[in-house]
């Protein structure tokens, strides 16, 4: 299916690299996998999901559960992005953009969560009581 698709992906009729543009780098639309591949991918995804759910119920695997789940879901993520969203086959600049974004998001969010989890959670009991008293005092004063 590759060839005739090139145009559909913005590469224009003359194909990559000959556009009025200036970068001469077009790698857009290098052909996509066919339906057969898509169906196989979907089957793999379904199986991985089944595994995820299955190991959730196996007590013996508990210690390994979290890392396994993380690895499996990352794998699913990568496969969907790579094949269904064609990032594996598409212009490399889309890939760069998306991955750069993911890196920023992952680092920022990771750091943020890490900062919360290093702190233990305290209920600010005293503060709440003070607040309560202040509120009651205010209500009384109002009456």
């Amino acid at each position: 299916m590759g060839g005739h698709n090139a145009a559909l992906h913005g590469a224009g009729p003359t194909g990559p690299g000959t556009k009025p543009g200036t970068d001469h780098l077009v790698t857009d639309g290098h052909g996509h996998p066919g339906e057969g591949v898509y169906i196989r991918i979907a089957i793999i995804l379904a199986i991985v999901t089944a595994i995820e759910v299955a190991i959730y119920y196996v007590d013996a695997l508990r210690p390994l559960l979290v890392p396994t789940l993380l690895v499996l879901s990352i794998a699913k993520f990568v496969v969907v992005v790579g094949y269904f969203m064609h990032l594996k086959f598409d212009d490399s600049r889309y890939r760069l953009m998306f991955i750069a974004g993911l890196v920023v998001v992952f680092s920022v969010i990771g750091a943020l969560i890490a900062m919360f989890w290093t702190d233990q959670y305290y209920v600010p009991q005293e503060a709440l009581e003070t607040l309560q008293q202040a509120r009651e005092a205010e209500a009384e004063a109002a009456e």
Partner: peptide, 14 residues
């Protein structure tokens, strides 16, 4: 960090 419960009490919310 808190919510006001229905009875007006101030409770920790998390």
């Amino acid at each position: 960090a808190f919510n006001v419960a229905a009875d007006g009490a101030i409770v920790a919310s998390g």
